[in-house]
Design a protein around this nucleic acid. Structure first.
Lengths: 220, 220
DNA sequence: ATGCCTGCTAACCATTCGGTCAATCGTCAC
DNA sequence: GTGACGATTGACCGAATGGTTAGCAGGCAT
């Protein structure tokens, strides 16, 4: 991106191999994510990275290898630990934090989330390895939810209408639904986590939420 | 192609232009939906349809035109009227029917639904026209939900914890979440609408559902 | 100096792509 | 018959693609 010279501010005295490799990755990341694999040519990547096409093939054997490298790079921010950060809270607050975390992450990484979902829906096998990584992440999040809800139910903090597994499954579905709705509507509405968390709380904890009288701020 | 004569089983007395056009569309439908636009070449379509490549360009001016024709064809089954079919039922039963309808449709048209979602996530603009059609369909369904819930709330059949709009939005998100989970897990689980409908009912109508004692059939 | 290895490039290659075109075949009208 | 016309084809085209190769600049050890 950034027309004209990108790094005029950061004087690149010595070329360095890692440097060029990184710029290739950045360019490829941008192009693959915004256009897709087949719609992006190596020449375009070379042009955007301001290197020769041959250099790309010197760093990465094939286009697929570059693609996989890009995928791994895009996946990095997904691996922050969403545990630990809320130890002293009770289950209810922890669940709300977890839900809020999910929504905030989606909001802040919308473009890469969109890219991954589109890619996984498109290429069923999809380099296989990546799909596994994503799935592992997903089921990890689910497991945390299940356990929190189960503990919450033991302490009578959560509704017991469903098993913890069923409740977590439904909750996760709702989150995913909010996610894709956000991906489609993107420019229209900004996805505010507050109302979604309120919905979830109302459902899971059986709370009463007034939306039709004074106090304003309807939950829509 | 096709060794020996191709259609010995179905006697094709006169070739007919509509016939070849249809086979081209069928072949393109299959290839576009399973591989995608850029990954499908006109030669492949020609081979699968057992016609010459030039004939495709006689029927359709460009590859894009063929693609749009395929999209419209794939979209046809989406336009059955999901109104009318449940007139005498009360709001609660109608909502359940509507939810069930959504889930059954998704289950039976999973591959084309997957294709549309992937396509719309991938090509932001996406031929513009199609996106509009899909959006109209979607908001039509949403409007029906909102009105049903509102009427249900008036008659005290539905929980009033949320506004009808908020409830419908959240419900729709849950359905969409179930949808994409189904698209990803596809081969693993078969998406049974029963349990999903039960979850929705529990949430929307405030029902108690026993899952942890006698009566069997856990809702998971 | 002389190799030598890393980083890098211009030019090239084979293949495939979307698309065109002149020519054919079959059928109906006259 | 013969022309007209819709349907159909093989052969072809320029552009673009993923990938290769020969070679060059320059630091660094001998």
């Amino acid at each position: 991106m950034s027309l004209s010279q990108a790094k005029v501010g950061a004087p690149e005295i010595r070329p360095g191999s890692q440097d060029s490799r990184d710029e290739i990755l950045k360019a490829a990341m941008h192009l693959f994510a915004s256009r897709g694999f087949h719609e992006t040519s190596m020449s375009e990547v070379a042009r955007e990275a301001r290197v020769s096409k041959a250099l790309i093939f010197w760093h990465f054997k094939t286009k697929e290898e570059l693609f996989v490298a890009v995928l791994n790079r895009l996946l990095e921010p997904y691996f922050i630990d969403f545990a630990e950060e809320a130890g002293a809270l009770d289950e209810r607050a922890q669940i709300q934090k977890l839900v809020e975390f999910y929504l905030l992450f989606v909001r802040d990484n919308a473009s890469s989330v969109r890219f991954f979902i589109a890619q996984m829906l498109h290429d069923q096998h999809f380099a296989e390895g990546l799909s596994d990584q994503v799935l592992k992440l997903y089921s990890g999040y689910r497991a945390m939810l299940v356990e929190l809800i189960a503990r919450g139910q033991e302490r009578n903090l959560c509704s017991r209408r469903f098993t913890a597994e069923a409740a977590a499954g439904f909750l996760l579905s709702a989150l995913n639904g909010i996610l894709i709705e956000h991906l489609f509507m993107m420019q229209n509405r900004p996805l505010d986590p507050e109302s979604a968390v309120a919905m979830v709380a109302g459902w899971l904890f059986g709370e009463e939420i007034r939306t039709d009288n004074a106090g304003g701020k309807a939950v829509a």
